[in-house]
């Protein structure tokens, strides 16, 4: 167990961003009991309503930057209210809370559940075989094997993840620009779904990501205004350059884990940039 409360930054902006991350993170229970151990439980007459007042809606829509220093301090000295606030943010919080960068622990935990669900998706086929009997079962199993083989072949030629997924860049002139940029960020996040461990697999995965960049660079993006499109192309060229360099590192003998860590950084940075851009107004 880490003493997470001791990681709290002391500068206002950093503290706000850190607290927001904790509010939708996995260690809020630990943080609140640590704060309670140091600050005490606080005055029981204080409630979220009395502390947040008319800012409650603002927090749900736009985060803690709506609050003044006194309100933040009151939350820290009444730590149980952070748990209540988490519930409100989860159930009623707006898109702002979905754009907050996830902690590494949260990302890994979500990936683990996603992988289990992906595996679970093939189970019904086995159930059908069990029900219809061994002989017919073999016929069905063979048919499934052929379908799987065909799908596997086609997926090898055209990997269906990230920006290479057929619908990843689908948009029209009426598409909301923020939603589109966030969708691009979400697709890029699929990079983390597979963690190659050897150099060959890593090279294949990075090449697919790089091909996704090419697709992004050559697409029309009709849902984006010209300023966004220029920005996206300029950034994408930078990301593509980094991926080329990382691929070159891999080909020149660098360990897969080291290169993957570098690509992780690049992908995290580009996700952050896309999400930030999605919240920025452009003329």
């Amino acid at each position: 167990m880490s003493i997470i409360a001791l990681d709290m930054p002391s500068e206002r902006d950093e503290r706000i961003s850190w607290l927001e991350k904790q509010l939708i993170g996995l260690e809020l229970g630990g943080l609140t009991s640590q704060l309670e151990a140091v600050n005490g439980p606080g005055d029981s007459s204080q409630t979220l309503d009395t502390i947040l007042g008319d800012k409650q809606t603002g927090v749900l829509a736009g985060g803690f930057s709506e609050l003044n220093d006194k309100q933040i301090a009151q939350l820290l000295t009444h730590p149980r209210l952070l748990l209540e606030l988490q519930e409100c943010v989860c159930e009623r919080g707006g898109a702002y809370w979905s754009r907050i960068e996830l902690t590494a622990g949260m990302r890994q935990a979500v990936d683990r559940v996603r992988r289990r669900l992906d595996v679970q998706a093939v189970v019904p086929e086995r159930t059908v075989i069990a029900r219809i009997g061994p002989w017919l079962g073999w016929v069905v199993a063979a048919a499934i094997a052929i379908v799987v083989a065909v799908n596997w072949q086609s997926s090898r030629n055209d990997p269906s993840w990230g920006w290479l997924r057929p619908d990843a860049l689908a948009s029209s002139a009426s598409t909301d620009r923020g939603a589109y940029l966030n969708r691009l960020a979400g697709s890029a996040n699929e990079w983390f779904q597979v963690r190659p461990t050897d150099r060959t697999a890593a090279a294949a995965r990075i090449s697919e990501l790089r091909r996704g960049c090419t697709r992004l660079l050559l697409s029309e993006h009709p849902g984006l205004p010209p300023a966004d499109k220029d920005w996206l192309l300029e950034r994408c060229q930078v990301w593509a350059g980094k991926l080329d360099q990382q691929l070159a590192f891999l080909e020149s003998g660098m360990e897969a884990s080291q290169v993957i860590a570098q690509v992780d950084e690049t992908v995290n940075a580009l996700i952050k940039a896309l999400r930030l851009r999605a919240t920025t107004n452009v003329s």
Partner: peptide, 17 residues
């Protein structure tokens, strides 16, 4: 998948608490 990507982190935080 989009639904999962959108809500899984917050759902996990909610359940953990």
């Amino acid at each position: 998948r989009e639904l999962f990507d959108q809500w899984a982190p917050r759902l996990l935080a909610f359940l953990k608490t």
